[in-house]
Design a binder for these strands. Structure first.
Length: 573
DNA sequence: GCCGTTTTCGGCCCGACTGTTTTCAGTCG
């Protein structure tokens, strides 16, 4: 059991305890313990003095953690699972229903799943319960309908341009003094539920009017003094929440609505240590009655004697417990010197080698690497060893023609279902960069598919593993791969792991990056896997994800000048 | 369940909003 798995058991335990009607503070204690396990800088097994060394872990939760580590199970969890109907946790995802309501519905009406809840509402049995009424019944019905439609979370790559369009429109409004994105969008999470914006204005009414009268608005959900929510359609539907605040409260509101919720909790606890109160309106000193507002977020953090934390770090994944010098000096877009994974018309790309190189030059890259698919990937017109030789000639020609960029010749080679590689060592050693990846037999069991990737990493000619877990966000689960063994072997063999910046992949994801770096010392590469010149733009998402994973410039080989890059990937021993 | 240079007991983050309520509980972000 790794840290993430133990944390997941603790969280599950907290969910069920909550439904069981346990003391909310106890529930919260389990959630805190889960976060502590997940955020621990040292593996649990090497914690001298045991889990109770972690902040928020005491005798009780430590015993549970020990039990999970030793047996892989939790007796408490099994008892709760036994006691509570299977369908109950699902009810938590219905808007407006929380643990208290579900507890009552279950105990008084015997409601155990969504269908029974719907029936109970239709029979008007729910309105008879204490604390419920007619309106609540209607809300529950709406909640069920919404839950079944599941609009789900939007990909960052879709939501970001919408928010940017709205941002520009608001900036053009003379009544708007400042406007910024907030929420998970500003934190650059891989998916977002809605697009949050914060606006500083003296005239909220006029701004609200502008928002609700935009042509893309298909529904006004809420139009109040301080908040406008609209459903817009830009080829896909997304909810946009705009907060309207007085200019002097802009920064505290921006901070509050940027979140995350967990980070905000820690910020408010911190303020309390000084006897202050933090809210979206400012920092309030109950003694003097003074309320502080700010011009920049940096001042807010300084006020709390904290180092400034960029939005990508605000997840309560340890950032609040670090001194300034222990916070990462995050990777910046300017550090990025070249893309090492892309396709051309030789396989399934849309552009030539030269067109890709020219597009890369325009972006100021110092180098790129052409990595078309290998022979076994027939659907993508994979290249044979012979094709590779001819492609190398074309790469050489482009290098002669173009000044200021170096084109490397590589391959994205399939790891075959039986674990063999698609080319012999003799073919591989001719190439500048060898990326290995999986494009078939995704459904293999954990051991088989993990072994497949380990094999590839153990080959001295394989420099990198592309999209190591194979997940497609919202569409396909990761392979059953044991990521910890991948990280461990990557560190041992010097194999570089990819953060694939394709917006559907972002693989490795933020939490993997952080753990692979901190616990295993893995080195990474960020590549777009571009199949066209336009796709180079995705690097922005890759860099944002890397920042969410606490990566610094020195963790990512794409920040190296060419000669040092060559040294780094020359792992043949 | 956890925690303590004001506390080993009595707290545990803040405010808006809604719907159920004559003063508040639950949910949400």
């Amino acid at each position: 059991m790794n840290a993430a798995q133990i944390a997941s058991v603790l969280n599950r335990l907290a969910d069920l305890m909550e439904l069981n009607g346990d003391n909310p503070f106890k529930v919260n204690a389990y959630r805190r313990a889960a976060r502590a396990v997940e955020n621990s800088r040292v593996p649990l097994s090497s914690l001298e003095g045991g889990p109770e060394q972690l902040p928020g872990v005491g005798k009780g939760t430590a015993a549970v953690i020990r039990e999970i580590m030793e047996t892989g199970r939790s007796k408490q969890l099994e008892e709760l699972k036994e006691k509570l109907p299977e369908g109950l946790p699902e009810l938590m995802s219905i808007q407006g229903l929380g643990p208290k309501s579900i507890h009552i519905l279950y105990n008084r009406l015997g409601v155990t799943d969504v269908e029974e809840l719907e029936q109970a509402v239709k029979d008007h049995r729910v309105r008879e319960l204490p604390g419920f009424g007619e309106k609540k019944e209607k809300n529950i019905l709406d909640g069920i309908r919404q839950y079944r439609q599941q609009p789900g979370r939007s990909l960052l790559v879709h939501a970001l341009p919408v928010a940017e369009i709205l941002l520009r429109r608001l900036q053009d409004n003379a009544d708007v003094q400042r406007v910024e994105m907030a929420g998970s969008l500003r934190r650059m999470k891989e998916t977002v539920k809605d697009a949050d914006l914060v606006v500083a204005t003296e005239d909220p009414e006029s701004v609200a009017e502008q928002l609700v009268s935009m042509p893309e608005v298909i529904q006004v959900i809420n139009q109040g003094e301080t908040k406008v929510s609209v459903l817009v359609s830009f080829g896909f539907e997304i909810q946009v929440d705009v907060r309207l605040v007085a200019p002097d409260r802009f920064i505290t509101a921006l901070h509050h609505f940027t979140g995350s919720k967990e980070h905000n909790v820690r910020i408010r606890q911190r303020a309390k240590e000084f006897g202050w109160k933090v809210s979206e309106y400012g920092i309030f000193d109950p003694e003097s009655g003074r309320e502080l507002t700010f011009n920049e977020e940096e001042e807010l953090y300084r006020m709390l004697h904290l180092p400034y934390m960029v939005p990508e770090l605000r997840e309560d994944r340890g950032e609040m417990d670090r001194q300034k010098e222990n916070l990462p000096d995050l990777l910046e877009p300017e550090d990025y010197r070249g893309d090492l994974h892309m396709h051309t018309r030789w396989s399934d790309g849309t552009a030539s080698v030269k067109e890709m190189a020219e597009a890369a030059m325009k972006r100021g890259y110092e180098y790129i690497c052409i990595t078309d698919h290998s022979q076994s990937l027939k659907v993508a017109s994979g290249l044979t060893a012979d094709d590779l030789k001819r492609q190398r000639e074309e790469v050489d020609r482009v290098n002669d023609e173009l000044e200021g960029i170096t084109v490397l010749a590589g391959i994205e080679m399939d790891i075959l279902p039986d674990g063999r590689l698609d080319f012999s060592d003799e073919v591989l050693e001719e190439l500048d960069v060898v990326i290995a990846s999986i494009h078939s037999s995704f459904k293999q069991d954990r051991e088989t598919i993990t072994r497949r990737i380990l094999n590839a990493m153990e080959n001295p000619h394989v420099h990198m593993i592309a999209h190591p877990t194979g997940r497609l966000i919202n569409r396909r689960d990761p392979y059953a791969v044991d990521v910890d063994r991948i990280f461990e072997t990557a560190a041992q063999t010097g194999t570089v792991l990819e953060l694939n910046a394709n917006p559907n992949r972002l693989d490795l994801k933020d939490t993997h990056l952080k753990r692979a770096k901190e616990e295993f010392g893995v080195t990474f590469t960020i590549n777009t896997d571009a199949h066209s010149p336009e796709a180079f733009n995705f690097v922005r998402l890759g860099i944002a994800t890397a920042r969410r994973g606490w990566l610094e410039s020195s963790d990512v080989i794409n920040t190296l000048p060419l000669h040092r890059l060559k040294e780094r990937i020359g792992k043949a021993r």
